[in-house]
Design a protein around this nucleic acid. Structure first.
Lengths: 344, 344
DNA sequence: ACTCGTCTTTGAATCGTTTCATTTGTTACG
DNA sequence: CGTAACAAATGAAACGATTCAAAGACGAGT
């Protein structure tokens, strides 16, 4: 009992052939009631547990789906991941989550790993240039779905949210408040961030006299936000922007922390602040944070659906599903059209 | 090129035996330079990727460690998980994360799954009664480490934080502020929560005239907290507690949302509020939240270390590592000894 | 030329399943 | 009684890697 029993042990114990035990597990209808009972009893007595490695080896494919996200600590991704897991569980599959931490080499590491595991499919929020890699996987029958990134539909499917629209919504909202000197905080080296910035710039271009300054945060965390916030605090009031748009809520919360630390800057009166993602914590912030909401559950669920679609059509057809983000106004940009004295 | 190449294909292509290819991969020193080069070239040309299932089957064990947490969306667990992953990666292993959602059947599901995968070891924050299950795993050579739960060291190892001490610290702090009518918000059906409550009650018992009311939150999320908070708001000021201790920060943030929604209740003047876990968002709250900090990175890292220890000693010796939590005072309990009029 | 030792390479056996062509058993019908 | 039809059970082959005893190659020493 110290070692794990194999199907062969079960067969011996129940006095049947190994094939019969396998049938009991996989095609119970093919086995007579009596034999089935005897086999099940033996399984219970020996504490037999299927060896998934052997099963996979024979099947040539696993029941595993790989998911690579940029940061599991980010509620946006953990929410997407959870939705994907739930959808996968319903299909009898498991999701393996890898955290690339926005590092191309870690991303590659997880791709290697998943390929060795012969995953059914791959969901990925890419960092590096994974196009060729995806081509190889497709050729080998492993479909890929890009998550939170628009795909070239010649190559693979994708679920994403219209980032340019989100950026536009955010900036437009700030401009509608009467603010003209905006700042964008984020890391434009990340495509989503760059696209949000582009949307914001489009909104700014529509309003004469408006401008947007880009502050690279070198990271997407609360800490990075705090650093940027500290720099803003050091500026003279005239040099400070009238409104700040952060590329995600973590950054915005960090900026908020710095700005509210010294009581000199008031949100939203002096600086209006808006984030992105609308994570659960946004509403609990010092000043409840306005944000751009993304449908995370739908993203995760749809990603799995697209994967199934690809499996069904043999990876020949690809689809890009794009969701629309939504503006959520809270106190950090409330106080209708309160306009500080223009300076400069 | 459409199908994945096997080691046999590589052998044929490089005109060597399969054993040689295997040696190139696993014992490069045993192979001559010339052959090695030829084999590596074939591997590259065919795009060969090891089949992990076959490898595991032969090895009898995987390079996977299972981790079952109560809620991945909870920053406490996602932080522990990340630390565990990092430690595992350093050992060349992978961590498979399962989210039980505090549901015993989902927990059992993941245990089944992990057993089928023949994981190297199991890290688990148990919900249901998993004692026997752990015994079985141990007999089969799969070590288990309880995470955030004290283990019977006859059975397995554990990493945990002294919850009773944490509860004591929190309540003591509230009492030191002069508050006497305390409330505890949480789900005492969860052991950690019950233990924290016990610690709080111990602190209360030390102070004559002090009392603590228990409010079951039926959940550990921001939403559950908001529900409890709404009930508190409905009470007359005299009926409200003078201080609230929540069994985690998410609950506390929810309670805070409800209490601050109507401007009638002030934190900390009317109600002092303290949470548990000290998640990153605690500091960004409407009123920066006091909390009890737990060393999450140390928990995750140590869990893996204990697993390795068990593997080395063949699962014969077990150790229970207990960390000490730390009080973090912020504005939600600041305002030294401000005491509202005693009522009742 | 022969033996010994070292370094390389070989290829069959093995891991635990699933699959499937075959065999065995049972019932029904002419 | 023979046999067709069907149900149930069998067991060898295959999946793709690793392992290891054995064979082969080669040079040095006698």
């Amino acid at each position: 009992m110290s070692q794990t029993a194999s199907i062969k042990d079960v067969a011996t114990h129940a006095q049947v052939a190994v094939g019969t035990v396998s049938n009991v597990l996989n095609y119970p209808d093919r086995v007579s009631q009596r034999t089935k009972e005897r086999v099940l009893k033996s399984i219970a007595e020996l504490g037999f547990v299927r060896n998934d490695a052997a099963r996979q080896l024979r099947a040539g494919q696993s029941r595993t789906i790989g998911l690579i996200v940029l940061d599991v600590g980010n509620p946006f991704f953990s929410s997407v991941a959870r939705a994907a897991e739930d959808a996968a569980t319903a299909l009898g599959s498991v999701v393996l989550v890898g955290d690339s931490g926005q590092d191309a080499s870690r991303e590659a590491h997880y791709m290697d790993l998943f390929q060795e595991q012969r995953v059914q499919g791959l969901l990925i929020s890419p960092v590096g240039n994974v196009g060729e890699r995806i081509d190889t996987l497709r050729e080998r029958g492993v479909p890929t779905v890009l998550v939170d990134e628009l795909a070239d539909t010649d190559r693979c499917s994708s679920v994403s949210v219209d980032d340019q629209e989100g950026g536009y919504l955010a900036a437009k909202h700030l401009l509608d408040l009467g603010r003209r000197r905006l700042a964008f905080v984020g890391t434009p080296s990340i495509r989503q961030v760059a696209t949000r910035l582009k949307g914001a710039q489009r909104a700014v271009a529509e309003v004469p006299g408006a401008g947007i300054e880009v502050l690279d945060s070198a990271g997407q965390t609360v800490l990075s936000g705090r650093n940027v916030g500290n720099k803003l605090v050091e500026r003279t009031p005239e040099e400070r922007p009238e409104a700040v748009f952060c590329s995600n809520d973590l950054l915005a919360l960090g900026v908020m922390q710095s700005l509210t630390m010294l009581r000199t800057v008031k949100i939203p009166e002096d600086i209006a602040l808006i984030g992105y993602d609308d994570i659960d914590f946004a509403i609990s912030a010092v000043v409840p944070l306005s944000s751009i909401r993304q449908p995370t559950e739908a993203l995760g669920r749809t990603a799995i659906e697209l994967l199934v679609e690809e499996q069904d059509n043999g990876g020949t057809k690809h689809r890009a599903v794009v969701f629309t983000p939504e503006l959520v106004v809270r106190q950090s940009t409330a106080g209708a059209a309160s306009q500080p004295a223009p300076a400069g």
